[in-house]
Design a protein around this nucleic acid. Structure first.
Lengths: 189, 189
DNA sequence: CGGCTAAGCGGACCGCGGTCCGCTTCTATT
DNA sequence: AATAGAAGCGGACCGCGGTCCGCTTAGCCG
């Protein structure tokens, strides 16, 4: 979009990678809630200030960590095997998409919660990718109406905190999945 | 449920009220983000520890503050004038309910966000009240299916963070409202 | 009314997220 | 190779949420 936003210095790039690697390793090893910014910094061999300069906030750092796996997931949606990827009929794809998103949200619940609110472009983009995709599928299905809002409405009940609340009320994943399928069918008409 | 859970001591009750009053006043005066636990404590004339003993966490305190207005809202849903209260046909009531919830969420956005996650019974109850009510209305409408999950799905897009995201994307309240009405009509069928 | 006990109190203390600013290091230029 | 200036660095520092424990006090019983 912009011509030359920032020619990143060599050591800065090295540090960014070191920080990201350290954060990823620590999150996997000890769980996201037991990772402090100071620990990440010292593990990466840099000062605390450097971590914050690169990633703004803790949420930003976690969003960056999450981004690795999120990108892979997006790739499998765009160009992976059906029914998640292209090739299957739109309704099947939509249902597969919901299931996949649900599973992902459950699996990475802690990390996602630690990353949300960052609003730091990265997580914004991640959220809007899902909306875009659902909107696209709704279009292929010939659904009419405000597709943007409809997409948001379909995605909302898959949100981590909503799902966690349901699980806390002893609602099984299968039931949540079935409930969502039902919702989709009603919306698609 | 339990016989005699806790015979609260007189000074404890007085302190609880003082804390709640101080918190309410400070939140109204300076905005929820500019109110610290220590400020609330000193304004109430008690020690910090007392505040935390009564309300567990900051979120818990904010949930208690929020509860005041939330209770009034619940009352108007249960026994207020139609179409929000009883007397109007179910679909009208449902739509009015959604609009009312949406407005409330926008109005108290900051406080609600500061209170969510508390899981401290109070906010749990508040959330499930809405679910109960929607489920009830869906029942009256003769909708069949998993009404619990359907209710959750209808409520999810009204959530504060979802709505705030939309507003950040320059989507007007009217459009959100219309989108929700559309969703409801599709679900009700 | 005096004394006993547990509920209640409060402020010193801790850890973490986030900021700030003086010092260091990279890189473009000649 | 020397140099200037910006980009980057890092750790001391701050404020706040939350905990802890020795002291106080309300409430009851003789």
């Amino acid at each position: 979009m912009a011509g030359e936003p920032a020619p990143e210095r060599a050591d800065a790039a090295r540090n960014r990678e070191a920080i990201l690697a350290a954060a990823l390793q620590l999150v996997q090893a000890r769980g996201v809630d037991c990772v402090t910014m100071e620990t990440v910094a010292s593990e990466a061999g840099v000062g605390k200030g450097t971590v914050f300069r690169r990633f703004e906030t803790r949420e930003g750092l976690m969003a960056a960590v999450l981004n690795e796996s999120e990108t892979a997931w997006q790739a499998s949606v765009i160009s992976g095997p059906p029914p998640l990827g292209p090739g299957a009929p739109p309704l099947e794809r939509l249902l597969a998409f919901g299931h996949s998103r649900l599973r992902t949200n459950v699996t990475h619940a802690a990390l996602i919660k630690a990353a949300t609110g960052s609003s730091s472009a990265r997580s914004r983009a991640a959220a809007s990718f899902a909306v875009m995709h659902v909107r696209h599928l709704l279009g292929e299905l010939g659904v009419s109406g405000d597709l943007l809002l409809l997409s948001i409405a379909l995605l909302a009940p898959l949100d981590v905190v909503v799902v966690e609340q349901q699980r806390a009320d002893d609602i099984s994943l299968e039931r949540i999945e079935a409930g969502w399928d039902d919702l989709v069918r009603r919306v698609v008409g």
